[in-house]
Amino acid sequence: MSLESLSFPALGSECHLFLVARDPKPLAVGAEWVRGLHERLTRFEPDSELSTFNSTAGTWTKVSPVLESLLREALRAHQVSHGLVHAGTLHALLAAGYTRTFSEGPTKPALRTQHLGPIPPLDDMLEVGHGHARVRAGYGIDLGGIAKGWIADRLAEKLGENSLVNLGGDIYAHGEGEDGRGWPVGFGGTTIFLHDQGVATSGSRSRRWGQSLHHLIDPRTGRPSKTDLEEVSVIAATGADAEIYAKTAFLMGRGAAEYFLGEHCPGWWLYP
């Protein structure tokens, strides 16, 4: 048994897969699975399944099992975060100027304020049935805030009993790592050992494109959030939960974040 690894770009980020096994082949299969999900779930390609779904806002639309699962996950994230992690912020992201992928360079600063304001609760604008779903007319779904942790959890299960998936900083570690102590992961300036746990980071220090313009929309205002935090990293039971808790804490600000994370997470890093 040896530690095998594979790095590749996908989901708008750099991805890293690790596997303790005799055969590294599952890594390539896993990378291909992630690329396939990227093509299906990106909002930057007009013919992706997500873009097609958004283009039919107001009507019931057939969705694949993967998109249906992620839309249900979006509703769960909204509930767990008390409404702060909100996948129905696409119109606000576009109004703020986040109109193209960062791989094409920084987006031109813009803030079309006539489109901005408090965003209705997600469960008022998104309905999900078996094999079909509907988003309210005038709104759209962006899965950038929840998809990577959710995918990391599932990919680690697919790779094998002792694997780690890092999708742009959202991580799930499955098993005990190479030496049985847990998977060593950099976290808040130290190394922690993960065993069947997830970690994620949320913050406004990247994906910025102008004064106070970044990709984390506060649904209470419909604008890029303004908090006293720039970055939050958390440990949780899964990558999906870590991503939700990190984003929630970031949007809450330091005071409420300390209390919220103390209730839900075994460890966290707040900056500054």
Binding site: G169, R181, P184, G186, S206, S233
Partner: peptide, 15 residues
Amino acid sequence: QSSSDQQPITFTSVS
């Protein structure tokens, strides 16, 4: 469990 001596194989970061 944590250690400041052990090198991580990867790290979490904002993306």
